[in-house]
Design a binder for these strands. Structure first.
Lengths: 115, 115
DNA sequence: ACACCATGTGAAGAATTCTTCAGGTTGTGT
DNA sequence: ACACAACCTGAAGAATTCTTCACATGGTGT
């Protein structure tokens, strides 16, 4: 077989591990956007945006087509939206857990200790 | 407010962007594991495993407690499982899309061109 | 053919993240 | 108290990833 599944997953997550790329995907999950439209929403240099779009294109997470004088991007796999939603859920879960950690007054289990 | 949401998401995904950490979470989503048990399943040096566990602990994605002579880890937010599942779905979606790309015989839209 | 706008690209230095090494710490049994 | 087992940690060099610069390219309208 090819690449082990867990490694493919890691690479997928790595692709998502950048603020600009998250914003791009969030915007694209609302509706298709031309590059200059993304540029207005995201604070980033044009060439940097191109680089990030290239990363997303290489993994086939987005596709581009030309419309009039502009290049329009869209999400290729709609389930990406679910992933972004799940992330938000987990994020609030994590905040909740981090709160609970402060409640441990007595338990002295050492490796769990925060420094 | 604190950190923008999209950046928190990016950091969450970054945490997941490592094969060893994916494996750890997959194993922990089946059942709790002691460190030495993880060590048998994952091909990695002990100290490296500790480092990766530390990364997961810092983000509160896992918690550890001591049981008998060993340290047992578990997932703190169960929804992490959903995230891993969603990733698998998307992965197969991506493979499908990548297949379709090969089917474009005539369409010469340039930026979509693969190199 | 030319000029212009919208994008894309290679390269290079800066910044992050990985991996491993050497040595610590904690808890348990004796 | 001592020794051992199971883990953890800081530090440092290697490897990746980011960001920006300087410059291409590709359409479009004239």
């Amino acid at each position: 077989m090819g690449v082990p599944l867990y490694q493919a997953k890691a690479e997928l997550f790595k692709t998502l591990g950048h603020p600009a790329r998250i914003r791009i995907l969030e915007l694209l999950s609302e509706r298709d956007h031309a590059v200059h439209e993304l540029l207005e929403q995201i604070e980033i240099e044009p060439s940097n945006l191109s680089q990030q779009l290239a990363v997303l294109r290489r993994t086939s997470m987005v596709v581009s087509r030309r419309r009039n004088g502009e290049v329009v991007y869209s999400i290729s796999v709609p389930e990406v939206r679910d992933l972004l939603l799940a992330a938000r859920t987990i994020l609030s879960g994590l905040i909740a857990v981090q709160g609970e950690l402060g409640d441990e007054l007595t338990d002295a289990a050492s490796p769990a200790r925060t420094r």
